[in-house]
Computed example of a mutant assay.
Amino acid sequence: MHSIKVKDYLNHRPVTFSQDMRIEAAVEKLLQSGQSGGPVIDENKKVIGFLSEQDCLKKMLEATYQNESHSVVSDVMNAEPFCVSADDSIVQMADRMTVNTPKLYPVCDSDGILVGVITRAHVLLALDKYLHDNYESGHRYV
């Protein structure tokens, strides 16, 4: 049977941020990467927060009104990131993603060290591949 674990589909080289990075630099990284957000990590690659496009948008809008910006990532990041395990099931991730709003989750080891990220697109790809593999092997779905 085809493996459907997070570790088989995650992005091992996600865009990451440091807490002292200026918001403008973080926005540039997001725009260049095409990611909707990313983990904020410390010098040991431990996940200490999460920065989303929405977080950046709020701060950039505020800076536009004030005609200046002095914000850094730690000012706007979610300081309670929800990490998932590389051994988590893709099916469980899909279920979680239908209820919760994050489009991207940091994948961490048991010490909170970043391993990668998993997105809705990765989960869809995994489910699609699983269904195609089962269909081609003769299984029919009702």
Rank of each mutant, 00 (worst) to 15 (best):
M1I: 10
K7N: 09
Y9M: 01
N11S: 00
H12F: 03
H12S: 14
V15H: 11
S18L: 03
S18R: 14
S18H: 15
Q19V: 09
Q19A: 13
M21D: 05
I23H: 00
I23W: 00
E24Y: 00
V27H: 04
V27R: 15
K29F: 03
L30H: 06
L30E: 04
L30I: 15
Q32N: 14
S36E: 14
G37Q: 04
V40N: 12
V40G: 03
E43N: 13
N44E: 13
K45G: 02
K46A: 07
K46D: 02
V47L: 04
V47E: 13
V47W: 03
G49N: 07
F50C: 11
L51M: 11
S52E: 07
D55Q: 05
D55H: 14
D55G: 02
K58H: 11
E62Y: 00
E62S: 10
Q66W: 00
N67H: 12
N67M: 07
E68N: 04
S69V: 00
S71L: 08
V73P: 02
S74N: 05
D75E: 06
V76N: 02
V76R: 00
N78G: 02
C83W: 02
A86I: 00
D87L: 15
S89W: 04
I90L: 08
V91W: 08
Q92E: 13
M93R: 06
A94R: 07
R96I: 06
M97Y: 11
K103D: 10
Y105K: 06
V107P: 11
G112L: 05
L114C: 09
L114E: 10
V115D: 12
V117P: 05
V117N: 10
I118V: 14
I118D: 05
T119S: 15
R120K: 14
L124G: 10
K129P: 01
K129S: 06
L131K: 13
H132A: 03
D133S: 13
E136C: 11
S137P: 02
H139V: 10
